[in-house]
């Protein structure tokens, strides 16, 4: 009995060590973005889909690739364009004359990790094909339901909405993404390093997988053990209630967003070597969780990020 549990814990420890290595590796590829990398891993551990939103050229795709590589998942990359069709994502049934029947050819969506690059450049029809798969974990084509592999994680990147030639994702579909992160320009010294060091693409090629998709599932189970206290729930509720005060946002966060917040916070605390969640975790996760789910009231000339930090500064920690 003791031996088994001991064994169990060594396995768990090993997983955790490899997770740390994975995080460090990604940090070596994407320089100076420790916080964003931590958020991205929290999202993965919570088995949520990640949205990376920023200007072209700041490392969105690099981050997505690095994550995919260290997880060692079977991954597919879909470059979204305006002429992309749903069938290009989901797959098609083709008539086989020799067998006199239709045979399904699965599309790129049938992978453990899907990189949806520049997701807002495709038409809404194609976007919805991806987003439905994200919500259901399965796709239905011509009456047949095809189960997607487990874990199934989508990392999507998108350009800011005001760039030409984009179709903004509808609010209901944005909700499928657990976290939405931005990278921002690198700090000057980091930028100098980027300019002088070797190409990131080459670094990526040399990178090998450190954890497996199965590990992700197991790590997710480990995260469920993280304790959440009553005092913390008080704080989460206070935050959720404050988002529904219409001086901040048009509509507040839903209970589903609240559950997602706790899931993410558990993963974040796990990454920080803690077996319980503290308010600081919530404050770290909250902006990434909220920024794509809520909008600033009409007529208020203020960025949603500013509103969120204003709100966090307003709610006292009980």
């Amino acid at each position: 009995m003791t031996e088994i549990s001991l064994q169990k814990s060594t396995v768990a420890d090993d997983r955790k060590v490899r997770l740390k290595q994975a995080v460090d590796t990604v940090n070596q590829i994407l320089l100076g973005k420790e916080q964003q990398v931590k958020l991205a891993f929290s999202c993965l551990l919570a088995r949520g889909h990640l949205l990376i939103e920023d200007l072209p050229g700041v490392g969105k795709t690099t981050l997505a690739h690095a994550l995919a590589t260290v997880i060692g998942a079977h991954y597919q990359r879909i470059q979204f364009t305006s002429d992309l069709l749903p069938a290009d994502i989901l797959g098609v049934s083709i008539y086989r004359r020799d067998q006199e029947k239709f045979e399904f050819h699965p599309g790129p969506i049938f992978a453990e990790l899907v990189l949806a690059d520049e997701v807002n450049r495709a038409t809404p029809k194609s976007q919805s094909a991806l987003l439905e798969a994200m919500a259901e974990g399965q796709v239905t084509i011509e009456g047949d339901t095809h189960i997607l592999p487990k874990p199934f994680i989508v990392i999507a990147t998108q350009n800011p909405l005001d760039l030409v030639g984009t179709f903004p994702l509808p609010d209901s579909q944005l909700d499928r993404f657990l976290l939405s992160i931005t990278l921002g320009f690198p700090a000057p010294e980091v930028e100098r390093e980027l300019l002088t060091a070797i190409d990131r693409a080459i670094v990526l090629k040399d990178t090998s997988a450190l954890i497996s998709p199965v590990d992700v599932l197991e790590l997710n189970k480990d995260c469920q053990e993280i304790h959440i206290s009553e005092a913390l729930l008080d704080y989460v509720q206070a935050l959720l209630a404050e988002t529904r005060n219409n001086r901040w946002f048009q509509t507040g966060l839903s209970p589903r967003a609240g559950i997602a917040l706790l899931q993410c916070c558990k993963a974040y605390a796990f990454l920080n070597d803690r077996d319980f969640v503290v308010p600081d975790d919530i404050k770290a996760i909250f902006p990434a969780l909220a920024r794509h789910r809520i909008t600033v009231p009409h007529g208020m000339e203020i960025a949603v990020e500013e509103q969120i930090s204003g709100l966090l500064n307003q709610v006292a920690i009980p």
């Binding site: 503290v278 308010p279 600081d280 919530i282 404050k283 966090l312 500064n313 307003q314 709610v315 006292a316 920690i317």
Partner: peptide, 9 residues
């Protein structure tokens, strides 16, 4: 100290 500060912060 501000009431909105997390303990670690």
């Amino acid at each position: 100290a501000k009431p909105s500060m997390g303990p670690i912060e």
